[in-house]
Amino acid sequence: MVRDLVVRELDHDPRFRWRGGAVTRIENLSDIVFALAFGMLVSSAARPTTFSELTGHLLTIVPVAAGFALLVLIWNAHFTFFRRYGVADGRIILLNCVLLLLVLFVAYPLRFIFDSLFGVILAQLGNWAVLEGTGIGFREAGIIMAYFSFGYALIFLIISLMYGHALGRSQQLELSETEKAITRQSLWHYGCQAGMATVTGLVALLTPAGPIAGALMILIGPLVFLGSRFIKTPALAGHSQEAGAMQ
């Protein structure tokens, strides 16, 4: 009983009653796939054998960190979904399998993409060695940005569909008004990421903007903020009364 109180009051999701109890087999499988993807992302570079190669290897912490952060973002959305809703019906299993396939498939390309984008940044600072080593020009960098954007959009589209499915099952899950509002905010958040990434990919592929089109992703923040302003959540005190009534 004390543990339940601590979880409700001190976890990172105090306004949402977590319905996912014990870790399920689908979550175990998902964690294994994410672990493999993290390993593929970090270990895809060749082992350095000289001092200059070691120095270059240390610089790869920047693109590796960028790819790592993106995978963590995806993992956290996945983790939060199963903790909040505990849903594992046929549709969620299908969507989850598609998500895992995408995560596993994009691990190596993700490292290449961020290495290439990092090379573009270094080239703007006068160091062309990394970019020349990849054989990538401005046009190729734009195509790489389009690949990244479309993959990003597809992943967050799947996550959006998962959250939308949970919202559609709000009655069976006995979601409170606060929880339904938070779910709508999450749905808007991930939908904005998918939509903006799609626009970025189209601009990168079809216009002369090329890799510079990635700057459009900055608009995700303001769009998410606007959604949080329009999709109001009841006060925390009101949620506590709802949660108490449900127990």
Rank of each mutant, 00 (worst) to 15 (best):
G133H: 03
T134S: 14
T134H: 15
G137E: 09
F138G: 02
F138R: 14
R139C: 05
E140A: 07
E140C: 03
A141R: 09
A141W: 05
G142V: 15
I143T: 11
I143D: 11
I143Y: 11
I144V: 15
M145S: 05
Y147Q: 15
F148E: 09
F148T: 02
S149G: 10
Y152K: 12
L154P: 13
L154E: 05
I155H: 03
I158V: 15
I158W: 00
L161D: 04
M162R: 11
G164L: 13
G164W: 13
H165G: 06
A166F: 02
L167V: 11
G168N: 07
R169N: 14
S170G: 14
S170V: 13
Q171P: 07
Q172V: 08
L173A: 03
L173K: 06
L173Y: 05
L175P: 15
L175K: 02
S176T: 13
S176V: 01
T178Q: 06
K180H: 09
T183L: 03
T183M: 02
R184C: 02
Q185S: 03
Q185H: 05
S186E: 13
S186N: 15
S186H: 14
S186V: 13
L187H: 04
L187Y: 10
W188Y: 09
H189V: 07
H189P: 08
Y190M: 08
G191C: 02
G191S: 01
G191I: 00
G191E: 00
C192F: 08
C192K: 01
C192D: 04
C192M: 11
C192A: 13
Q193S: 14
A194H: 02
G195L: 14
M196P: 04
M196F: 01
M196K: 01
A197M: 15
T198A: 07
T200I: 07
G201K: 00
G201R: 01
L202C: 07
L202H: 04
L202S: 05
A204T: 09
A204E: 08
L205V: 03
L205E: 07
L206K: 10
P208D: 05
A209K: 10
G210L: 14
G210S: 12
G210Y: 14
G210A: 15
P211F: 10
P211R: 10
I212M: 12
I212G: 06
L216F: 15
M217R: 11
I218M: 07
L219H: 03
L219I: 14
G221M: 13
P222H: 06
P222M: 05
